[in-house]
Amino acid sequence: MTEVKQDMKTAPQEERETIISYDRQTETWHIYTDEPKHARKYEKYVTHPQRKGYNSAGQLIMLEGDIDNGKVSIIKKWKLTDEQRKKQSKALQKARISQRASIRTEGSDIN
């Protein structure tokens, strides 16, 4: 059963934490976070939360529970050079133009 707390106050930024731990016996990942950004991000992976907290506006600000059938991995942030950034921007722009063209073509085939 999920314990739901309403009208919680968001923790000060310097006190917020996210703890993700692994239980080897049950092979289960467990998460506790009072960082609103992380609570929203991981909510979809916790199908049976133990605790959830919402602020007065109804926004999720705290989450605790097991990550169901999941795997946790951490990756390093990418640091792109200006040249790499420009190359990716051009590729994305080309893909968007191509997608728009194919949508227009599909729409014109309708009788």
Rank of each mutant, 00 (worst) to 15 (best):
M1C: 11
M1H: 14
M1S: 13
E3L: 02
V4M: 00
Q6G: 02
D7E: 08
M8E: 15
K9L: 02
K9V: 15
K9R: 04
A11T: 10
A11V: 09
A11E: 11
P12A: 09
P12T: 03
Q13D: 11
Q13I: 14
E14A: 03
E15K: 00
E15Y: 11
R16D: 02
R16A: 01
R16H: 00
E17A: 07
I19S: 04
I19R: 03
I19Y: 02
I20Q: 08
S21M: 01
S21G: 15
Y22Q: 12
Y22E: 00
Y22P: 01
Y22M: 07
Y22K: 02
D23C: 07
D23L: 07
D23S: 02
D23M: 09
E27S: 14
T28M: 05
W29L: 04
H30Q: 05
I31H: 02
Y32A: 04
Y32L: 04
T33K: 05
T33W: 00
D34V: 05
D34T: 09
D34Y: 02
P36H: 06
K37M: 15
A39P: 06
A39W: 00
R40H: 09
R40T: 05
K41Q: 13
Y45C: 06
Y45G: 03
T47F: 09
T47E: 10
H48V: 08
P49G: 10
Q50P: 11
R51Q: 14
R51A: 13
R51K: 11
K52N: 00
Y54C: 06
A57N: 13
A57P: 00
A57M: 05
A57D: 10
G58P: 11
G58F: 01
Q59D: 11
Q59E: 14
Q59C: 01
L60M: 08
M62T: 15
M62E: 15
L63D: 06
E64F: 00
E64D: 01
E64P: 05
D66T: 10
I67C: 06
D68S: 12
D68P: 04
V72C: 09
S73E: 13
S73A: 12
I74K: 03
I74W: 06
I74G: 03
K76M: 13
K76F: 10
L80N: 01
L80H: 07
T81W: 05
D82M: 01
Q84L: 00
Q84P: 00
K86C: 06
K87T: 15
K87C: 03
K87L: 10
Q88G: 05
S89V: 05
S89Q: 10
A91Q: 14
L92C: 14
L92I: 11
L92R: 15
Q93W: 01
A95F: 03
I97S: 12
S98D: 15
Q99S: 15
R100G: 00
A101P: 11
S102Y: 06
I103N: 12
I103M: 08
T105M: 02
T105R: 09
E106Q: 09
E106L: 05
D109V: 04
I110P: 01
I110Y: 05
